Simulated scan of single mutants.
Amino acid sequence: MLIILKESATDAQIDHVVERVEGLGLATHLSRGTYRTVIGVIGDEDKLQAIGPEAIPGVAKVVPVMPAYKLASREAHPQPTIVEVGSGKAVTKVGGGHLGMIAGPCAIESAERLDEIAGEIKKAGANILRGGAYKPRTSPYAFQGLGEEGLKILREIGDKHGLPVVTEAIDPRHVELIAEYTDMIQLGARNMQNFVLLTEVGKTHKPVLMKRGMAATVKDLLMSAEYVIANGTTDVVLCERGVKGFDNACRNMLDVAAVPQVHQMSHLPIIVDPSHATGRPELIPACALAGLAAGADGIHIEVHNCPEEAMSDGPQALLPNQYAELMEQLKKVALAIGKTI
């Protein structure tokens, strides 16, 4: 960490800063320039951050040498993390050249419907089944999910088709129950900075799928991942699902550039979700292909066998045959870039 002093800093103030830092058990290296004096700090930077060094007289600003998301950073872990989702024969790897192809309905509606959809997506090549048991809805009158009954259905159908399962946690009170039934816990865009929820999910040691918030920067996303990792769960898969733009032609704006940017900044795998990014089925295939070509470690797509009857987000779901066609195209792109499904 570098402490940059003000041009007007006096010798007494400089000595005080050095004394304050060394009092924390940290080493210092003083460098006097023509216009600025810089103090290099060696040691546990968290000790220094805890005292708020910007408040010390004479300090202009503090510049971290390491990013704040230490555990999620590429510097801390140069090799890409490979996240294993599931157990036994139903294990899917995500990252390091392995693609996680997540598909399923927005909400779990019934065992029969989920069974039909799971069979279709498995045949097409999907390797993780998704479905919401608890749904964060904009309207309090909209379908909120089946709760524990939905979790039981998801587990049963996942086991039947040999697919690991993922569902979203929206309340810290549900985390333990969700961890009992699922192989992966999703943290949605609306909860990306729900730090109480992040902490509880991190304690489960279950793989986590973390979606980027609608107004979050890539750094914000990595800082939220840091919360989960710091609490014990190292297997985190990030998800670019679109951010808010000024154009209302799509539900959100897919930030494809976030994929290679995350790979430069972090060792964590990142997938793309063109369903929530566009909200338009006719745009999903092109955005999915673009995301994979940009280096995504997987694709997350909503699939429903009768969108007009869907209880949540039906208009943005692909039909099973449309998903199968897209998967054939994605397999060709994966082959061209040296990744495997």
Rank of each mutant, 00 (worst) to 15 (best):
Arg36His: 12
Asp313Arg: 05
Ala288Cys: 12
Lys122Pro: 02
Val59Asp: 00
Ala334Val: 08
Val41Trp: 01
Gly100Leu: 09
Val17Ile: 14
Gly33Tyr: 01
Pro57Gln: 01
Ser31His: 15
Glu325Val: 10
Gly97His: 01
Pro67Gly: 08
Ile299Gln: 04
Ala230Trp: 10
Asn231Leu: 12
Ala118Cys: 05
Ala257Trp: 15
Arg20Trp: 14
Gly150Ala: 11
Tyr323Val: 05
Ala27Thr: 12
Thr182Ser: 15
Glu328Gly: 07
Glu176Pro: 11
Asp255Tyr: 13
Glu149Ile: 06
Asp46Ala: 11
Ser87Pro: 10
Asp183Thr: 08
Arg36Leu: 11
Glu309Trp: 13
His29Gln: 13
Ala277Pro: 00
Ile42Trp: 15
Lys219Pro: 12
Arg173Ile: 11
Cys239Leu: 04
Arg74Asp: 03
Glu302His: 08
Pro140Lys: 08
Pro136Lys: 05
Leu292Asn: 02
Asp11Leu: 14
Val262Cys: 08
Ala296Glu: 03
Ala230Asn: 14
Tyr35Lys: 12
Thr34Arg: 15
Val243Ile: 14
Arg173Glu: 11
Ala27Tyr: 13
Thr217Gly: 12
Val236Leu: 07
Tyr323Ser: 03
Gln316Val: 08
Glu168Lys: 04
Glu22Ser: 07
Leu209Cys: 02
Thr10Ile: 00
Asp44Thr: 05
Met214Lys: 07
Ala317Glu: 02
Val59Arg: 00
Arg173Pro: 05
Phe195His: 10
